[in-house]
Nucleic acid binder design. Structure first.
Lengths: 346, 346
DNA sequence: TTGAAAGCGCTAACAG
DNA sequence: CTGTTAGCGCTTTCAA
């Protein structure tokens, strides 16, 4: 029941193999290139011919064979997404939504997404995919200061687009969020709610972590609010942060608002505050920075700086396709604004 | 710098286009057919010939062109994974790890994974992918009682493997976890720790939710422990569950162990307990059911029934490839055992 | 505006 | 064991 394709060739039969471009041409009484031209909306046919072809395509439920098309046109209509290979932690939560957004955005442009990971040598998988010409370009995320992947792709002359920025010396199309503005907008939001005494909780690892803290500082400065270094908690482990927040909130003059550079850490802060008997959103306000769906996991739901994944994905795909189609490396990047997603926590 | 491929044809040049099978054949002084045979480890060449070919391949850094190969062999070496299109919630957390595992497992067999989603009509994307012959088979997850995707693929004669089971009437290769045994093992674990008074927290939506509760009941029965219906909390929203757990733990004779059918709900239970001043792991034990990395997000880390994603992915890929290669629909399924991942919460 | 010829890079089928 | 001949299904090039 699985291998019945070789039974009969008659295009009108029930168990027929899929119809090909010749069937369409025959039915529309044109040559197959005309069909091809119509398919790729090239010029060179009358409106009437086009109509006939379209009817035939419809009638035969024809869809061009992807491999054949790729072989001839040197276009796979596939984009590769390199998913982080590291141990998945809560902070990768956003990757899931990101992949979904990417897949959708690519589909909007008739492309598919090949997701791959490395095990060990990071560049190996890229080399292979480039060698077999399995994709037309790549989408990268989680870029560090100097990204070897971007470096490799650039020297190999393969189009790619970056979520985040790498060394400016490298020609690249990037899309990024304005982390500084994002964190700063959280401060604005809280000030608008009447808060005057702030603390910050965040990671200290990646470039964007640094930017978020910077944005926090900038936000406060804009409002002429001062903050002591003791009110800035930077931690690697949830445990450590939990303890630090407990200490922070145990002080006689505790802050009324905690800005966090991570939803996960914000959740930790929320839990710590709750265990001290504080009411979230009333006794103390907490904001996160959107890493995905973690936002929904606290009670009350986190007020968070939302990373607009859909918008980012759309821009990335657009950039990458532009590079593929036009061969231009547009070395400028796009900064996507964040927005506050209000929950009950602030 | 991006479109320089048409400059020169000399295979020995620096900026040369990639070498093809003819280059290899010429260099190894055999016909290209022999190269192809070696590549696909078919028989029909001497050991010495093979060596020469291999050397040439190495020297020229040759890799066969995927599209050309696919066109001829009718094999894309790609598998499609249909990622849930619904709004992503915390309970989809496991999908991320699952995708990673899938991609790895596929790579182990020389295959790539195409991830796609639907927007609106679920089957539409399947039809398209089948029509253009973009993949050799599909991996599905999150199967419901009667899965239209499985039904369609079956009638279209396209190989697929299922994480979870659908209507038994449909020939299918499936891989699933033993939810009943999993939940029941959590009870065993807790009984082993001396607990005698239990409660359950879970969802009530999907088939596996029901199975987990069933497993809980079975586990208790095995040890001759009785549980009142009031100690079983089934909820849809985190808020509701939070409230219910507070009430549960506020009773004069509160349970000492809470088994949960979800890591997210277990986290909610942990937080509720903490806000009552109870010490997790001491005053009250909580176990989850692994939805991914949520386990790491509580303090202390959750003791949870781990879903072995890697194992599952490996089996799924193996099943799917078997169907593709052998054309056999093996209607039997594989039940993967879960294991307890001990944390500090129980 | 349309059609005929050529070939993308590979493997299947069969001949030597 | 090896090489030759076809042709997968499509698009490109060029001639009508």
């Amino acid at each position: 029941m699985a291998g019945k394709q070789a039974e009969d060739r008659e295009p009108t039969q029930a168990g027929k193999a899929r119809s090909d471009i010749n069937d369409v041409a025959r039915m529309a009484r044109v040559s197959r290139q005309t069909v091809s031209n119509v398919l790729n909306n090239r010029t060179g046919y009358s409106e009437e011919t086009r109509a006939r072809v379209l009817v035939a395509i419809e009638a035969l439920d024809y869809q061009p064979h992807r491999a054949a098309r790729s072989l001839r046109s040197q276009r796979t209509m596939q984009l590769g997404y390199h998913m982080p290979g590291e141990q998945l932690a809560a902070d990768n939560a956003f990757v899931l939504g990101f992949i979904q957004a990417l897949v959708r955005a690519a589909a909007d442009h008739g492309h598919h997404v090949l997701v791959f990971t490395d095990q060990g040598d990071e560049l190996e998988v890229f080399r292979e995919l480039v060698a077999i010409r399995g994709v037309d370009g790549f989408i990268l995320s989680g870029s560090r200061g100097d990204d070897p992947r971007a470096r490799y792709l650039h020297q190999a002359g393969v189009p790619f687009a970056l979520f985040g920025r790498t060394a400016p010396s490298l020609p690249q199309s990037w899309v990024d969020i304005d982390s500084v503005a994002g964190a700063s907008s959280a401060v604005d939001y809280l000030v608008g709610k009447g808060h005057e005494s702030f603390a910050y909780v965040g990671y200290d690892a990646k470039p964007w972590d640094v930017e978020r803290l910077e944005g926090f500082r900038k936000g406060l400065a804009d409002h002429g609010i001062r903050v002591g270094e003791r009110s800035i908690i930077l931690g690697d482990t949830l445990d450590a942060v939990h303890g630090d927040v407990l200490r922070l909130l145990g002080r006689k003059r505790r802050p009324t608002a905690i800005v966090s550079g991570s939803d996960v850490l914000a959740a930790v802060a929320v839990n710590a505050a709750k265990s001290l008997g504080l009411r979230i959103g009333q006794d103390v306000a907490v904001t996160g920075f959107d890493g995905g769906f973690v936002q929904q996991m606290t009670e009350p739901v986190l007020t968070s700086v939302r990373i607009p994944v859909d918008r980012i994905a759309a821009e990335l795909i657009a950039c990458c396709l532009r590079e593929i189609d036009e061969g231009t490396v547009q070395s400028a990047g796009i900064l996507i604004p964040t927005e506050i997603a209000p929950g009950g926590s602030a």
